[in-house]
């Protein structure tokens, strides 16, 4: 009986166990790699950029001299973009999601729309820039304006917003709809007074995350021709504009080290803005979880 654990294979087993330990360490190392990379990125940016993070950055327009340069026009441009995009993409994205979840008949055409949306989510952002260039800038004659930029970015984030809103709407229990219908509500009354209020914070979470992606996007706006040097604030929808990532790109592309550091300061501002948006999204998500 005392031989039960005295297997002839003990050596083989201890070998396998050692093997297991080695791999475990490797897997852990790989997981830490991502965290280390993120830390290195943050440390690099903060050490490079902290010195130039002063009020001039927010109050000055870009300049030929790094020491006098700021990103006022870029920050304002980004905020304008956000204010323009948010309502358009919210209405279109949530509207599409409501249609697909509540109204669309279950047929081939609906499946096609659905497939189309998931495909669009995988299209590289630069292709949206090309679309914006051809449609908004040239065909609609909106030129390299704030409006062209906002519309292009709306198309870019729309698939993300639609998918997130669909999930939020799908998560609303059937019972909420039944309760409303049983009181004599019409379809639209049920959607607008019962389903949407239940789903709205999850929808907003998705919308904010999608908008934060748009705020960090550079390539599509370069393609449609957002200017890199703008020493004024846009006064109408049809003015040229710049945004933070483009200003940052412009500084990175300069050979002088002073501009590189300025780029790092700009990145800090951009990242802080993104952190604020993400924290807001997480807070909304937590609020939503209480509602289900």
């Amino acid at each position: 009986m005392n031989n039960l654990f005295q297997d002839a294979n003990r050596q083989q087993i201890s070998g396998r166990r050692r093997n297991d330990l080695i791999w475990r360490i490797l897997f852990l190392g790989a997981t830490l790699f991502g965290i280390v990379a993120l830390s290195a990125l943050i440390i690099t940016i903060v050490t490079d950029g902290i010195a130039r993070l002063n009020p001039d950055l927010f109050t000055n327009y870009p300049s030929r001299r790094a020491s006098a340069s700021g990103m006022k026009s870029a920050i304002v441009g980004s905020l304008y973009m956000l204010c323009l995009m948010a309502p358009i993409s919210f209405v279109l994205g949530v509207g599409a999601a409501i249609y697909l979840e509540e109204y669309a008949p279950k047929n081939r055409f609906t499946r096609l729309i659905q497939l189309n949306i998931s495909t669009l989510a995988g299209v590289p952002s630069i292709v949206y820039g090309i679309l914006g260039l051809a449609i908004f800038v040239r065909t609609f004659g909106l030129e390299r304006s704030l409006l062209s930029g906002a519309l292009t970015m709306t198309l870019l984030v729309l698939p993300i917003i639609i998918v997130a809103s669909q999930e939020a709407i799908r998560a609303v229990p059937r019972a909420r709809r039944d309760a409303s219908f049983a009181l004599g509500a019409t379809k639209w009354q049920t959607v607008s007074r019962s389903v949407l209020p239940s789903a709205i914070s999850a929808i907003m979470t998705g919308v904010i995350l999608a908008l934060s992606r748009a705020i960090g996007e550079t390539a599509p706006l370069i393609i449609i021709g957002a200017a890199t040097y703008v020493a004024f604030l846009p006064e109408s929808l049809f003015d040229t504009f710049t945004v933070m990532p483009i200003q940052i790109y412009n500084w990175i592309a300069r050979p002088q080290e002073a501009f590189q550091d300025l780029a790092a300061s700009g990145i800090i501002v951009l990242m802080i803005m993104l952190v604020i948006m993400n924290v807001a999204a997480i807070m909304l998500r937590n609020k939503y979880q209480k509602n289900i």
């Binding site: 229990p173 019972a175 909420r176 309760a179 049983a182 209020p197």
Partner: peptide, 10 residues
Amino acid sequence: MVFQQANPFP
């Protein structure tokens, strides 16, 4: 109608 599970709105 009243349902099996109480289903108040949030």
